[in-house]
Simulated assay, not measured.
Amino acid sequence: MSSDVSALTGGPMRERLTAAAARLVASGGAATLSVRRVASEAGTSTMSVYSQFGSMDALVDAVVDDGFDRLESRFVAIEPTDDPIGDLGRQTAAYVDHARENPELYAVMFGVARVGSHQAVTPDELAVGRAGTLDRVGATLQRAVEKKRLREAGGSALAFRWWTIAHGYAMLEGSGYVTREKGPIRILAPLLIDFVVGEGCPRRGAEQSIRRALDLPLP
């Protein structure tokens, strides 16, 4: 048995291939991803890819998982405070930063960019496999409800309303329709403020919490 094949039974080779695939997506987009290119980037053989993942779809899933792991690590780094509205602003900033710094990976994560016939994340897959990452924002919103900063909306309604804002803004900024310099103060902050005000938060407190979280001048 060759040394290359014997290495296939351990985790490091799988991690190496996933990292190589993520680098290809990040540098050249979903169109650059192929078994041969991933193997070359990882310095191994195409046999390694098939032995570890079995198919291209499984490799893409691993890349998507890596993207959600990176996003979750940003959320984990945000220590909860007594101001859940400010925490929500910081989580929003972390989400947007993730999309800014990993635009190609972000597009694959949410099925915006497809790898061949593979749609990276279907709604069912997101609900079952990767919702834990976004549930961290849901937990922050629930704390805001418990502290009477927001009204109870039932189920995941608040989280989906927040996600519509964060994802929509990230996509518009990533596409160049919104500039990174002016977008946060002209668009993102007002959207977040109006969102929490509409869900029951007094405007004055909402403006202070959100603007402070986004490092913007206070009104």
Score class of each variant (00 low, 15 high):
163 W>A: 15
2 S>F: 14
59 L>N: 00
75 F>M: 10
21 A>W: 03
123 P>G: 07
14 R>V: 13
130 R>A: 07
105 L>T: 15
62 A>N: 00
203 R>F: 01
79 E>T: 03
93 A>L: 08
63 V>L: 00
126 L>R: 03
89 G>R: 05
59 L>W: 03
199 E>C: 15
208 Q>I: 13
190 P>R: 10
64 V>G: 07
16 R>S: 13
52 Q>M: 11
133 T>I: 11
28 G>I: 05
209 S>M: 08
67 G>V: 00
116 G>L: 06
112 V>C: 06
178 V>E: 12
182 K>G: 07
34 S>V: 08
71 L>K: 02
126 L>Q: 05
179 T>I: 09
193 I>N: 02
138 G>C: 03
166 A>D: 04
53 F>Q: 00
185 I>N: 13
69 D>V: 14
78 I>E: 14
126 L>F: 10
172 L>S: 14
209 S>D: 04
173 E>Q: 15
86 G>T: 06
215 D>E: 11
73 S>T: 09
20 A>Q: 07
23 R>P: 06
144 A>W: 01
88 L>E: 00
106 Y>E: 07
207 E>Q: 14
26 A>E: 08
189 A>C: 04
78 I>D: 06
130 R>N: 06
184 P>I: 13
6 S>Y: 11
201 C>K: 03
205 G>W: 10
124 D>V: 12
208 Q>V: 15
109 M>G: 04
122 T>Y: 07
155 G>N: 12
70 R>M: 11
194 D>K: 12
128 V>Q: 06
26 A>C: 05
153 A>Y: 14
151 R>Q: 10
175 S>R: 14
50 Y>T: 13
122 T>K: 08
20 A>Y: 05
76 V>P: 11
133 T>V: 14
216 L>M: 08
139 A>T: 13
110 F>L: 14
127 A>R: 15
77 A>R: 13
180 R>G: 12
186 R>Y: 07
188 L>C: 06
158 L>G: 03
51 S>V: 01
70 R>C: 12
90 R>A: 03
203 R>D: 10
90 R>K: 09
146 E>V: 01
29 G>V: 11
98 H>D: 15
120 A>L: 06
78 I>W: 07
151 R>D: 13
55 S>E: 04
38 V>L: 01
132 G>W: 11
63 V>Y: 01
151 R>A: 04
85 I>W: 03
31 A>W: 10
111 G>L: 02
81 T>E: 09
165 I>G: 11
68 F>R: 00
196 V>L: 00
202 P>K: 09
80 P>C: 01
119 Q>T: 14
10 G>W: 09
14 R>W: 08
57 D>G: 08
19 A>Y: 10
181 E>Q: 08
212 R>E: 09
6 S>K: 09
150 L>E: 00
176 G>V: 12
132 G>C: 06
189 A>Q: 07
139 A>Y: 10
194 D>V: 14
110 F>C: 05
159 A>R: 15
36 R>L: 08
15 E>P: 01
186 R>N: 12
69 D>C: 13
175 S>Q: 14
219 P>R: 01
127 A>W: 13
116 G>S: 12
69 D>I: 08
11 G>F: 05
161 R>P: 04
219 P>Q: 03
76 V>G: 06
140 T>Y: 01
48 S>P: 01
191 L>A: 15
39 A>M: 09
184 P>Y: 14
